[in-house]
Nucleic acid binder design. Sequence first.
DNA 1: GTCTATAGCAGGATAGAC
DNA 2: GTCTATCCTGCTATAGAC
Lengths: 216, 216
Amino acid sequence: MTKNETTENTRERILDEAEILFARRGYQAVSIREIIQAAHCNLAAVNYHFGQKKNLYLEVFRSRLIPRAKRVQAAFWESLHKETSHSVDTIVRTLTEAFIHGPLTEEERYLHNQLMAREQAEPSEALELIIREVMQPFFTEIAHLLHQVLPEKVEKDTLRLSLLSMFSQILYFSFARAAVTRITGREYDDDFKAILADHIVRFCLHGLGTVRREDK
Amino acid sequence: MTKNETTENTRERILDEAEILFARRGYQAVSIREIIQAAHCNLAAVNYHFGQKKNLYLEVFRSRLIPRAKRVQAAFWESLHKETSHSVDTIVRTLTEAFIHGPLTEEERYLHNQLMAREQAEPSEALELIIREVMQPFFTEIAHLLHQVLPEKVEKDTLRLSLLSMFSQILYFSFARAAVTRITGREYDDDFKAILADHIVRFCLHGLGTVRREDK
DNA sequence: GTCTATAGCAGGATAGAC
DNA sequence: GTCTATCCTGCTATAGAC
C-alpha cells in the first residue's frame, strides 16, 4: 500500500499522480482516466476539484513544481551563506550542487526537470508561471551576485547567456538520461552522478572565463 | 498554393507535414487527421503508405531527420577541411557554426532540434535510430579528432561529457526559444543569433579548458 | 494509389444519486 | 466530496469502390 492510498485527501493524491504522469509522458499523452487509476479515485473527482484537465495541469505547476523550485533556490542561498568566501568558484559550485544534489530526492528532481524541459520545448500557460515565479527572479539575483564578484565586469547580457548555458546542461543531463547513458556507456549511479556534477561545475567555471588552464 | 500541394507525391507530402506537426507538438498530440489536412490528402492514404501512425513517425526520422543530420555533419567536415589549422579553437568554432548556421534553413533547424529534444526527453524506438545512425558515430569521430589536438591528453570520458555539454547548449538555445527570449529580452533575429553562436563557441572553448583568461 | 464510409473504441466532460 | 452512469466528440484503423 502506497502512502497515497489513504494518508492524503483525494485532491492531493490526484495532484501527486498527475505530476508523475505529466512529467513522464506529457500533457496530451496522459488521460484523466490514467490519473484517477493511479490516484485510486473516480473520474468525476478530477472535474469536481479542477474543472477541466488543463486546470489540473496548471495546478500541478502552482502547487507542486513552483514551491519545489523555490525550495531548491532557498537551499542554494542557505548553502552559500555557510561559505566563507563568495568567489565565482564558490557560487558556481554551490549553484550546481543545489540543482544536482540539493534538497530534492532523485525522483523529485527527475519529475521537476522533465516538466521544465517539456514546458520550455512546448510552452503552455504554465511557462509564463515558471518564468515569472521561478526563472526571472532567480536569474536576476544570481546575475547581480556574480556581477559583483566577477574579476572583469562582464556584461549583464553575457552573464545571462552563461547562466542559461549552465542550466541547459543541468537540464540536459537530467532529461536526456537515455541518450547520455548510451553515449557515455555509464549508468546513472552515485559514482557517475558525482562525475557529472564535477564536470558541469568545471565546464561552467571555465565557461565563465574565470579559470586559467594552469589553475586546475 | 504551397509547393506541397502539387509538386510531390502524396507519400512525400504526408512525411513533410507530419514532421512539422510532430516537431511542434509531439507524437501523441498530433492526430492523423491534422496531418492529412495539412498534406491535402485522405485519411486512408496514411494507412496505405505507412500502415499505422507509429510507422509514419519512425519514417519521418528515417527519411527526413537522419539524412538531414548527416548533411550537417558533412557540412562540418567540409568546412573543417577548408581550414588551414585544425586547432581546438577551429574545431569547436566550426562545429558550433555547422549546427547553428550550417546548411539548414532556420525552419529545418527548428524542426530538427525539436524532434531531437523530444526523443531524448521521452525516448521511443526513434531514439535508437538517432543514437546509432547520428550521435554515436559522430561523437566517436569528434572525440577522436579532439583527442589528437588537445594540448593535454584529456580523458576520452571527459571529452564525451564536454561534447554533450556543448550539444546540450546548441539544443537548448534552439528548443527553449520562448524561455530564452523572456530571460534575455531578445528576439531571435540575425543579430541575436550571431551573439548566441559567439557565446556558445566561447563558453565551450573555455569549458574544454584550452583557453586562458588572458587570451581573449 | 486515392477515395468514401464506417467500425470500434477511448477521450473529456456532465448529470444526478448518495 | 465521492460515486455510477452516460453523452458526445474525435481518434485509429479497415473495408471496399474507383
